[in-house]
Design a protein around this nucleic acid. Structure first.
Lengths: 215, 215
DNA sequence: TGATGTGAAGCGGTTCACAGCC
DNA sequence: GGCTGTGAACCGCTTCACATCA
């Protein structure tokens, strides 16, 4: 185990490993080697070992890793042993879809509130989640102990929304607006750009290698 | 200009550059230097020049780039001068949200069909888009000239859906199922994992540096 | 003069290969 | 014998710095 800065690529993979281990646990598998994990889930065994070793010596030489034990370690490392309260800003189609999606699929994250600037939407509910006026963000965020914000507003207003969020003391932000954001201070912003992803596929299709369907 | 394999990181940025140029064009800006672009949109000027140079010599020394001309080049490079027809597999909450989202925000991509296995959903419409039986995928895909597929089904069935898609000859796939997929042949799969993104934020929040809000 | 295009240097992540331990 | 943990080699992307050219 080393005391180094851990790359985001590593932490992303930790999340993947945890899911894989959950699958194994569901099958009642007790131990697994890095090689076994890699083969089963199309991963790289050296990378698994290296990633895990950043956080501790969880394995047993000659045996592998104990599935349940490692699951607990990963859960703690990823901070998934505590609840997180999520606010979604932008109650448009994407925002409401994310509210449903996260509400259903995520166990440690609960969507506590939504925000919008549209008077028509304010006061309505998406499932159990109320839509508040974005002007009240700081107050509601504090009241509901929000610690994660999701930006699902048009690109043009994303930067100003980010400023409202960070002023309220939120440190973790997921951004779905297709625009690069200027981030100040120790705030983590993860941008998921659905447009870039699609255009990247378009580029791939435009390459001559793929035009005939063979290569 | 070099004849090398171009990294996906580069093509992703090309998509960003195009958006930036569109913004400049909307402001009637005629020329821009790599430095000007970088300052304005928080990018890196050396990287802009290097990225563009992979595809040609679009700039003029001492001047910069002509905005309109470069926009056209990027549009062509990214294959955005031709229409793409998208199929969304999985008519659940995420799938329907994506149908709406892509239908509204993307100009060169049109959602032509949706698919599901649930008899209740088959035959219904999301906006103008009909939901078909996944069993008819190959037929409909051919009929409607689908060239991009979006996977928005549960993780457990994502792999089998991918196989249906690739057997039908689709080469470009966007995957929202939270699972690593085994890809065969010259098919491009882009996975967007909303779970990983959230858990990565959770990790960030769990770090001691961030617990006091300062560092 | 001013900005591009590009070799070269720098840096970070991945893969290799093996010593160390069960 | 088997598998982990890890230094070293490798590889690819980013950044630098400057020759080149309008």
């Amino acid at each position: 185990m080393k005391v180094e800065k851990i790359s985001e690529l590593t932490t992303n993979r930790m999340s993947i490993y945890l899911r894989c281990l959950n699958a194994l646990a569901a099958e009642n598998v007790k131990t697994v080697s890095s090689d076994g994990l890699a083969k089963r889930f199309h991963l790289n065994s050296a990378q698994i070992r290296k990633d895990l070793a950043y956080f501790g010596e969880f394995g047993v030489r000659g045996v592998g890793y104990y599935v349940d034990e490692l699951r607990e370690h990963l859960t703690k490392i990823l901070g998934l042993n505590t609840e997180h309260c999520v606010a979604i800003i932008g109650a448009g189609r994407l925002g409401t879809a994310l509210a449903d999606y996260y509400g259903l699929t995520q166990t440690n994250f609960s969507v506590a509130a939504m925000f919008d600037a549209d008077k028509e939407k304010i006061g309505q509910k998406i499932g159990d989640v109320e839509i508040f006026d974005i002007k009240d963000f700081a107050r509601i965020a504090k009241r509901d102990k929000i610690d994660v914000a999701v930006i699902a507003v048009p690109a043009a207003v994303a930067q100003s929304v980010l400023e409202i969020i960070t002023k309220a003391g939120i440190k973790a932000v997921m951004n779905f607006a297709p625009t690069p954001l200027k981030v100040e201070g120790d705030v983590k912003v993860k941008t998921v750009d659905l447009t870039i992803s699609l255009e990247s596929l378009s580029y791939f299709l435009a390459q001559p290698t793929n035009s005939n369907g063979k290569n």
